[in-house]
């Protein structure tokens, strides 16, 4: 079982390549900028916590799927995987390590952005209502679900695409649209939306990852 080793290795890679830092600092900053732009343009205040979750689900989703797709395509084309695949490990462990490390990185970035949002709301309004906290928690579940689907789609696109250009196009046209799936129970106003969102996410992620692993297992390097 080499997954824990590959996972920590990937995390170290993100840390070393400054990607982690950019995400963790960048996402809360972008959320703050959105808040500022929203206040000055309409004069009406939407709770910052809500803005944060919107930023997370749209921006972080795209970022994570692009990060995964591009890194897999690059590493595939530069024969990086060859040195891993000739060692006693399972091919699927490579992909799962990548998926988990990026997902955990963007999850932390998302939580940071929401934390910044809640702190800002608390400072500006002097309180955090129970309703706001409930809504935020629900939005966060949806956002993190969408992120998970985006990451899984990024892995599949990375494995299937022959070039970075094709990968980027597929992520923009396909990956982002698939990530809307976890949002459907909320849009359709289904009872127990959160439960349905979680179940849909698990199913979609599993299907996307199984497809990616299947392709990767058959790939002749």
């Amino acid at each position: 079982m080499k997954l824990p080793l590959l996972f920590t290795d990937e995390l170290r890679g993100f840390y070393k390549s400054k990607l982690m830092l950019i995400l963790w600092i960048g996402l809360p900053i972008i959320a703050l900028l959105f808040r500022f732009a929203q206040t000055t343009s309409t004069g009406q205040d939407i709770p910052f916590t809500v803005i944060s979750t919107i930023v997370i689900s749209s921006l972080a989703g795209t970022l994570s799927s692009v990060m995964l797709a591009v890194s897999i395509i690059n590493e595939k084309n530069r024969n990086v995987y060859t040195l891993f695949l000739i060692r006693p490990l399972k091919r699927r462990e490579l992909l799962l390590a990548k998926f988990l490390s990026v997902y955990i990185c963007v999850t932390i970035a998302s939580l940071l952005a929401v934390f910044v949002g809640m702190t800002t709301d608390y400072i500006t309004t002097g309180m955090l209502s129970t309703k706001l906290i409930d809504n935020t928690a629900q939005s966060l579940v949806t956002s993190l679900s969408m992120l998970a689907v985006s990451c899984a789609a990024g892995v599949l696109i990375g494995v299937a695409s022959p070039s970075v250009m094709v990968g980027a196009i597929l992520v923009i046209y396909g990956g982002n649209q698939i990530s809307v799936i976890p949002l459907m129970p909320t849009i359709l106003n289904i009872t127990y939306a959160t439960l349905f969102t979680t179940t849909t996410t698990l199913l979609t992620c599993s299907l996307l990852l199984i497809a990616a692993i299947g392709l990767f297992e058959r790939k002749q390097f």
């Binding site: 080793l5 290795d9 590493e75 024969n79 990086v80 060859t82 040195l83």
Partner: peptide
């Protein structure tokens, strides 16, 4: 054509491959 991830140092690459082996 041997390829390594760009962020890897010689030491880190060898440690990873050593552990994997």
């Amino acid at each position: 054509s041997v390829g390594f991830q760009e962020w890897r140092t010689v030491d880190h690459a060898l440690k990873t491959f050593g552990k994997l082996s």
